[in-house]
Design a protein around this nucleic acid. Structure first.
Lengths: 145, 145
DNA sequence: AATTTTTCCTTCGTATGCGAACATTTATCG
DNA sequence: CGATAAATGTTCGCATACGAAGGAAAAATT
């Protein structure tokens, strides 16, 4: 049912990509009924953590390119999840807020994310879960000389 | 210089995505001078592992959608990395081969991939490296009930 | 105050990534 | 044999991703 041999030479980058794709794909299915993508859900979590952030601040928090964020915010604004308010003090800035509609689904959507993470980690022991998270954090750090 | 606090609630899916993006981005820079993308490099490795594969076989080996592969192969064929030959026995099938030009860079490109993986894993002990790879393999498996 | 630099956001171009629909071809089954 | 089913590859549509360039506005510098 599954290819027991390694499909490709020992390539951790490849493994990372596929592990991510699997986890991403599963959560994507869960979110589909809500008309939200993974990234859009992430944006909502970011705004629930702190409303009124600028696109630049949100991009830093979510470690995501501002160019990508621009399109995402457009679609979310269009779909009624996010409201873009111009900053009165700085006309370059747009401040972002979850809409009433988004807040109405807040607890539900946060619960979905929790469950998806638990399902993803259910195959590991508690010790392994801690270790895995540390590994992933370490991987995000710049490489050492 | 870096945000010491977790940017978002404990979300392994997010960590996976960002760890992947970092690793992917680094290798992307390494490949840039060759005019190859990560995925295109992966295709070459797949064809060096076994030349003459069909797009379907290659997609299975690389765990990648045939729709994605179609465009990738077009661009690689256009750029002179891959040759598409029609199968004489099955007119639906196209068989894929690395070009002479690709083979001329084979050892060089494989070495680059090895080095990138070593650099990625250099921050971990040997035991941690083994564990990390096992974790990633496990993550690719379907979730248990 | 005028110039330069920086910041914020958008837009463009290219490359994934994948579901869905399709045409062509092959296999299967009644 | 003929109808149906299945496999292969392409195309379309949508949503990331991100480098690069650009326009507007604010900050810093002289």
């Amino acid at each position: 049912m599954h290819s027991t041999t390694k499909p490709l030479p020992d390539c951790t980058i490849f493994l990372l990509a596929k592990a991510y794709q699997k986890a991403h794909g599963r959560f994507k299915e869960i979110l589909k009924p809500y008309g939200l993508t993974n990234l859009q859900h992430l944006v909502l979590e970011g705004l629930w953590y702190e409303a009124g952030q600028t696109a630049a601040e949100l991009g830093k928090m979510l470690v995501m390119d501002k160019a990508t964020l621009s399109g995402v915010l457009d679609r979310m604004s269009e779909a009624g999840w996010v409201e873009k308010r111009p900053d009165p003090d700085d006309r370059r800035v747009v401040r972002l807020f979850p809409t009433r509609y988004a807040d109405d689904h807040k607890s539900e959507l946060i619960e979905l994310r929790k469950q998806a993470n638990e399902a993803l980690l259910a195959r590991f022991s508690v010790e392994e879960q801690v270790l895995l998270k540390r590994f992933l954090w370490d991987l995000m750090e710049p490489e050492r000389a």
